[in-house]
Amino acid sequence: MTDEVAIRRTAVTRAARKLRSGVSGQSRLERRWGLLLALPAIIGFVVFSLAPMAVSAVLSLTDWTIGSTPSFVGVDNYVHMFSQDPLFLKSLGVTTYYTLGAVPLTLVVAFAIAMLLNAKVRGLGVYRTIYYLPTLVPSVANAVLWLWIFNPDFGLLNSTLRQLGAPTSNWVFSETAVVPSLILMSSWGFGNIMVIFLAGLQGVPRHLYEAVAIDGGGAWRQFRHVTLPMMTPVLFYNLVTSIIGTFQVFNQAYIMTQGGPNNASTFYVYYLYTTAFTKSEMGYASALAWALFVIVMVITVALFRSSNRWVYYEMGAAR
């Protein structure tokens, strides 16, 4: 190797280094800024979500009653939950019942309304606003409003049923009717889901409908073979978020029924809340929270697994 070559090589190496360090300096800068700008969110997540979760995981292994010194009890809380706590199973059952009713009903109602609002009619903006309005009513006001709608003596529902000569119900004041009544009420809050459906519907390519029409397909076939398959990703998203949401149903029990009558509306999170703040059993309440977390996670994972079979992505593997 001659000196000239060696010198040239050194120069090339230097240049490469310089280049590399230049690029890496730039990317380091970007990384730093990225991190810095994401920091509030990261800190928020760590301080307000991750850390409390970690603490509650530890607490779930203790018998901590607020004010006393916690002592470690291993998995006793979890054993107690499954073997000796009738309210755990009861509240889980009530919540599942609610989910099985509220999620399909809300999805169907939201989808149907979204389809209607996707039609080309005059005053569409007004209709869209009107149908979205109930979502803007605060949930506490909504609960109180529905309490009056459900009033067996002079509520809207029974008054209407009486006029039609139909049998009336005690709605949320009856052990058997309370969950179906709350399911009915849940469909009122379809606005947000509807907007997502509406956005999805507007993304369905027109030419697919035209293709079905050319082949002689009517409205049903257009819906069955174009709208529905193209909407499955949106449907899937709404399904997952709705299920997670309904498993956390709380306000209705807290404001309207206090879990009654006879625990018929003791939803899981309401039970968790009363355990933590009425009975002050924070250790056991933490265990309840973790059990719910696992249950919701299992359901979510199962839904994601099943999605391969029924969710259609136009972009193939690009999910």
Partner: peptide, 13 residues
């Protein structure tokens, strides 16, 4: 009145 007729399962409502 029953709790239902009273307008609230709980007297709070």
């Amino acid at each position: 009145p029953s709790p239902a007729q009273l307008g609230g399962g709980d007297t709070a409502n």
